[in-house]
């Protein structure tokens, strides 16, 4: 009976979003810790990502134990970008002509980057699959 209760409790806890969010925070903290103590060039969050990937790949971590938490972080990610935008407050010069120029650089630069990246992959993909009749991965 106690064993049954324990497994049920563990199962409920494991699938709760809050627990999963906490778990991801833990992996992040581990990544940051490693990055700080080993002075690697790789940022802590990326180390955390690799820790999770490694645990998933070696089946030490079940994907259902982190999936809902991860979905929450990915869905709300735009919120975490917002505070950075207010750095504009310290740079009023960006709101004038200079800002428009920068906007133009970003706009044309991003279009160029996107077209080149997409075209490079698409051309290689077609070249690799030449002769085969499938155009959707």
């Amino acid at each position: 009976m106690t064993r049954y209760l324990r497994t049920t409790f563990w199962r409920t806890l494991r699938s709760s979003r809050l627990f999963q969010i906490a778990l991801i925070l833990l992996f992040w903290a581990a990544g940051e810790g490693i990055a700080r103590t080993t002075h690697l060039m790789i940022p802590g969050p990326v180390l955390g990502l690799f820790i999770v990937l490694l645990l998933l790949a070696t089946r030490r971590l079940n994907i259902l134990t982190v999936r809902r938490g991860a979905q929450w972080f990915l869905a709300e990610m735009l919120l975490f970008f917002i505070p950075a935008v207010l750095a504009v407050l310290d740079h009023p010069e960006l709101l004038g002509m200079l800002g428009l120029k920068i906007l133009a650089v970003i706009l044309f630069g991003t279009i160029t980057i996107m077209v080149v990246t997409g075209a490079a992959i698409d051309l290689c993909y077609r070249w690799v699959n030449r002769g085969e009749k499938c155009d959707v991965v």
Binding site: W28, E32, G48, G69, Q71, F80, P83
Partner: peptide, 21 residues
């Protein structure tokens, strides 16, 4: 609001899941 920006860290970690899938 620095803590909100810091959450970009765990959000990066969360990308492990779609990549693994």
């Amino acid at each position: 609001t620095h803590w909100l920006m810091m959450l970009l860290g765990p959000a990066t970690v969360a990308f492990a899941i779609p990549i693994y899938e």
